[in-house]
């Protein structure tokens, strides 16, 4: 007995930037971005705070689950960080929702949603009678260097949520971590202690070795999917859908080819949203749910990879 997803929600900031818009301040082109990433537009938090989109997605998910905020027993917020270091984003979501339950952020970068599901699973092992909100939110537009054309074009902002109740949807889950600062890193602020004054301060923007991350990502999808289908006692052919982390279309196509899974089974949102980090998988999940694609018995694989380096994959059978 683990959990079932009884509601999903999502929110995207209103401001949409096309590749063409980016050419106004970056030396890039629509053709370059589309051919290398499949990304056409991304949403950017301009009028909204990170909390605003987190709240919207959470309220959507609660409404979909037909629950009130007061019904929640735990809020887990996979994120690289909200508007403030403390309070955590999860605590601010809890306050604004009017919920009254333990709440914390969880940083597993782009793998955060799957990590969040794994943590939730452990809570259900202790207490079946719970309702847990997993709200994955990232505003990468605040963490990338908008002068770096190689990385800035890849990301967007968004929030995706799932409400969990005890049930049997989760059939298998597998997480990994392998510490690596070279492949992908966002340095933190050093503070202003007088003794640190003369030390070099790294700019707090994302740095990424694209080739290394590409290789890591393709291999992560291939390895993790094989592991979770085996653990769930099914085969890759049994999967109705694969929801991959929406980092780059080329990564997804490469993994699909290697695994011999038809691209039609991979659900994509990368062209309209870019890489929304932890939010990318629940954003797709919510879209599918609202389109009525998730009927009882649907076998779905989630597969994520990201900074850390972390990976996470799971098999869900929709109930």
């Amino acid at each position: 007995m683990s959990f079932s997803i009884i509601g999903t929600g999502s929110a995207l900031p209103k401001t949409i930037q096309t590749n063409e818009d980016l050419t106004e301040f970056l030396e890039t082109s629509n053709e370059w971005i589309v051919s290398r990433t499949g990304i056409e537009t991304r949403h950017i938090c301009v009028a909204e705070s990170i909390l605003d989109i987190a709240l919207d997605a959470s309220l959507n998910a609660l409404d979909n689950a037909q629950l009130k905020p007061q019904d929640l027993d735990l809020i887990i917020c996979p994120t690289l960080g909200g508007d403030t270091v403390t309070p955590s984003l999860a605590c601010l979501v809890e306050k604004e929702l009017g919920a009254a339950c333990p709440s914390f952020d969880l940083n597993a970068a782009c793998s955060g949603f799957v990590y969040g599901l794994d943590v939730a699973d452990a809570y259900f092992c202790r207490n079946k009678d719970m309702k847990i909100l997993v709200i994955a939110v990232d505003a990468m537009s605040k963490l990338v260097d908008w002068k770096d054309r190689k990385t800035a074009v890849l990301f967007g902002d968004g929030a995706g949520a799932a409400v969990l109740s005890s049930g049997d949807d989760l059939k298998a889950i597998h997480l990994t971590a392998a510490g690596n600062q070279h492949a992908l890193c966002i340095p933190w602020q050093k503070g202003n202690h007088p003794l640190l004054r003369n030390q070099e301060t790294l700019l707090p923007y994302l740095k990424m070795d694209g080739s290394e991350v590409y290789r890591f990502a393709v291999s992560a999808i291939c390895k993790d999917l094989k592991i979770v289908v085996k653990e769930a006692g099914i085969t890759l052919d049994d999967l109705d859908y694969v929801i991959p982390h929406q980092a780059n279309l080329r990564i997804i196509e490469s993994a699909a080819k290697r695994l011999k899974i038809p691209m039609e089974k991979f659900v994509l949102q990368v062209s309209s949203c870019g890489n929304t980090s932890a939010a990318s998988i629940p954003l797709v999940l919510d879209e599918m749910n609202r389109q009525g694609k998730l009927i009882p018995g649907t076998q779905i694989a989630l597969t994520a990879f990201g900074g850390g380096l972390t990976t996470g994959a799971c098999i869900l059978e929709w109930s």
């Binding site: 290398r36 694209g210 080739s211 290789r215 490469s254």
Partner: peptide, 11 residues
């Protein structure tokens, strides 16, 4: 071949 093709080939 772009940079990602090169990575694919190396893989």
């Amino acid at each position: 071949l772009d940079s990602l093709d090169t990575v694919e080939l190396v893989m």
